[in-house]
Each structure stands twice: as structure tokens, then as C-alpha cells.
Measured scan of single mutants.
Amino acid sequence: TTTLTYTDEEEARKAAEELKRRGITFTYTKRGGTWEIRIK
């Protein structure tokens, strides 16, 4: 499992869109002031 952490929502959203485009499965979690993208 790879976890990407972002403090900028815009960056996190761009990363999530890129992963979706590649067909990669991930979970997206907001934790306080950070956003976590966990790639399975």
C-alpha cells in the first residue's frame, strides 16, 4: 500500500483524477487539514 499525503486540496484532487484516468484503485480520506490517497 502506498499512501500519498497532501496539504493542498487542489493537488490531492489532481492526483486522484490522474489515478482514476489510469484505472488505479485508491481510497481518498480527509484527515484534519490533510488529504490522504491510499493506493491498494
Rank of each mutant, 00 (worst) to 15 (best):
39 I>T: 03
23 G>K: 04
14 K>Q: 11
17 E>G: 07
15 A>G: 03
12 A>N: 00
23 G>Y: 02
8 D>K: 08
29 T>P: 00
4 L>E: 02
21 R>K: 11
40 K>M: 15
31 R>G: 05
22 R>Q: 13
20 K>I: 13
23 G>L: 03
38 R>V: 15
40 K>A: 14
10 E>G: 13
23 G>M: 03
16 A>W: 04
7 T>K: 07
1 T>M: 13
13 R>F: 07
30 K>D: 11
38 R>F: 09
24 I>Y: 10
20 K>G: 06
38 R>H: 13
26 F>W: 01
5 T>L: 13
2 T>Q: 11
15 A>D: 03
25 T>W: 12
7 T>M: 09
12 A>H: 01
18 E>I: 10
34 T>E: 08
40 K>L: 15
29 T>E: 13
14 K>F: 07
9 E>T: 02
32 G>H: 08
30 K>Q: 13
18 E>V: 07
10 E>H: 12
22 R>H: 07
20 K>R: 14
4 L>Q: 04
9 E>F: 07
34 T>I: 15
29 T>G: 06
21 R>N: 09
2 T>G: 07
7 T>L: 09
3 T>P: 04
24 I>W: 05
6 Y>G: 02
19 L>N: 01
33 G>D: 15
33 G>F: 11
19 L>R: 00
25 T>M: 12
12 A>L: 04
17 E>L: 11
24 I>P: 00
29 T>D: 05
33 G>W: 07
9 E>M: 05
18 E>L: 08
6 Y>C: 02
1 T>D: 14
15 A>S: 06
12 A>M: 07
29 T>K: 08
19 L>G: 00
6 Y>E: 00
18 E>Q: 08
29 T>C: 09
18 E>C: 09
8 D>C: 06
14 K>P: 01
16 A>G: 05
33 G>H: 13
2 T>E: 08
9 E>K: 06
30 K>T: 06
16 A>D: 01
33 G>P: 11
16 A>R: 05
39 I>A: 02
12 A>D: 00
10 E>C: 10
28 Y>C: 10
13 R>P: 00
27 T>G: 03
18 E>R: 08
5 T>M: 10
1 T>Y: 15
39 I>P: 02
36 E>F: 12
30 K>P: 05
19 L>K: 00
34 T>M: 14
17 E>H: 09
31 R>A: 09
15 A>L: 05
40 K>Y: 15
16 A>V: 12
36 E>Q: 07
37 I>R: 00
24 I>T: 03
30 K>H: 11
36 E>R: 04
14 K>A: 13
20 K>S: 12
26 F>Q: 00
22 R>G: 04
25 T>H: 13
1 T>I: 14
17 E>M: 12
39 I>H: 03
40 K>R: 12
33 G>S: 13
5 T>G: 02
9 E>Q: 07
20 K>P: 00
23 G>V: 01
38 R>S: 13
30 K>R: 09
17 E>K: 10
15 A>W: 05
4 L>M: 10
23 G>N: 06
5 T>F: 14
35 W>S: 01
31 R>F: 10
19 L>D: 00
32 G>P: 04
30 K>C: 08
6 Y>M: 02
32 G>V: 05
30 K>V: 10
16 A>N: 02
20 K>V: 12
6 Y>I: 02
27 T>F: 06
14 K>D: 06
30 K>A: 10
2 T>C: 14
9 E>I: 05
39 I>Y: 11
24 I>A: 04
10 E>F: 12
22 R>E: 05
21 R>W: 04
5 T>N: 05
31 R>D: 06
7 T>E: 09
18 E>F: 10
5 T>H: 09
34 T>L: 15
39 I>M: 04
35 W>K: 00
23 G>Q: 03
25 T>L: 14
28 Y>R: 02
10 E>D: 12
9 E>Y: 08
37 I>C: 00
25 T>D: 15
31 R>Q: 11
10 E>L: 13
37 I>T: 00
11 E>S: 13
32 G>A: 09
23 G>F: 03
15 A>H: 06
7 T>Y: 13
9 E>S: 04
14 K>R: 12
11 E>W: 04
8 D>H: 07
36 E>A: 03
4 L>K: 04
23 G>E: 03
3 T>M: 10
32 G>F: 06
34 T>Q: 12
9 E>C: 05
34 T>H: 13
16 A>P: 00
3 T>H: 05
11 E>N: 06
22 R>K: 11
33 G>T: 12
8 D>E: 07
14 K>S: 10
12 A>I: 02
23 G>W: 02
5 T>A: 05
2 T>I: 15
16 A>Y: 06
26 F>N: 01
1 T>V: 14
32 G>M: 06
1 T>N: 11
23 G>S: 03
27 T>P: 00
24 I>N: 02
3 T>F: 10
21 R>A: 11
3 T>E: 03
28 Y>H: 03
11 E>R: 06
14 K>V: 07
3 T>I: 15
2 T>L: 15
14 K>N: 10
18 E>Y: 12
16 A>M: 15
26 F>L: 02
18 E>K: 05
39 I>D: 00
34 T>S: 10
6 Y>F: 15
12 A>W: 10
3 T>S: 05
16 A>I: 15
21 R>H: 06
27 T>Q: 06
31 R>I: 15
30 K>L: 05
34 T>R: 12
27 T>A: 05
37 I>S: 00
35 W>F: 10
28 Y>E: 03
9 E>D: 03
28 Y>Q: 05
37 I>F: 03
27 T>V: 09
20 K>H: 11
38 R>Y: 09
32 G>I: 05
36 E>D: 02
16 A>H: 02
32 G>C: 08
4 L>D: 02
30 K>E: 12
28 Y>D: 01
25 T>K: 14
25 T>A: 14
24 I>K: 03
29 T>H: 11
40 K>G: 14
14 K>W: 07
19 L>T: 01
7 T>W: 11
26 F>R: 00
4 L>A: 03
17 E>Y: 10
23 G>D: 03
6 Y>T: 02
8 D>Y: 05
17 E>A: 13
22 R>W: 06
10 E>K: 13
3 T>K: 07
14 K>I: 08
4 L>Y: 14
34 T>D: 03
39 I>E: 01
37 I>H: 00
15 A>T: 09
31 R>E: 09
3 T>V: 15
11 E>Q: 11
8 D>I: 10
35 W>R: 01
11 E>L: 08
14 K>M: 10
23 G>A: 03
2 T>P: 06
33 G>R: 08
26 F>H: 03
35 W>P: 01
18 E>H: 07
16 A>Q: 04
26 F>C: 02
13 R>H: 07
21 R>C: 06
5 T>W: 12
11 E>T: 11
7 T>S: 09
3 T>N: 04
15 A>Q: 07
37 I>K: 00
32 G>L: 07
26 F>K: 00
29 T>M: 11
16 A>F: 08
10 E>P: 04
34 T>A: 10
33 G>M: 12
34 T>P: 02
6 Y>S: 01
6 Y>A: 01
34 T>W: 12
22 R>S: 06
17 E>V: 09
36 E>N: 03
22 R>L: 14
17 E>N: 10
32 G>N: 14
36 E>V: 14
35 W>H: 03
13 R>K: 14
35 W>I: 13
26 F>A: 02
4 L>N: 03
8 D>Q: 07
15 A>N: 03
39 I>Q: 02
15 A>K: 13
17 E>T: 09
24 I>V: 11
19 L>Y: 04
2 T>N: 08
25 T>V: 12
33 G>C: 08
16 A>E: 02
39 I>N: 01
10 E>V: 12
9 E>N: 03
7 T>G: 06
6 Y>V: 01
15 A>F: 11
6 Y>Q: 00
33 G>K: 11
30 K>Y: 14
1 T>Q: 12
31 R>S: 11
28 Y>L: 15
3 T>D: 03
11 E>G: 05
13 R>L: 15
13 R>V: 10
35 W>Y: 10
36 E>K: 03
40 K>H: 15
12 A>F: 15
40 K>I: 15
9 E>W: 08
9 E>A: 07
11 E>P: 03
28 Y>N: 02
26 F>G: 01
26 F>V: 02
28 Y>S: 04
30 K>F: 13
27 T>C: 09
2 T>W: 14
37 I>A: 00
16 A>L: 10
7 T>I: 08
8 D>R: 09
24 I>S: 02
1 T>A: 12
36 E>C: 03
34 T>K: 13
32 G>K: 07
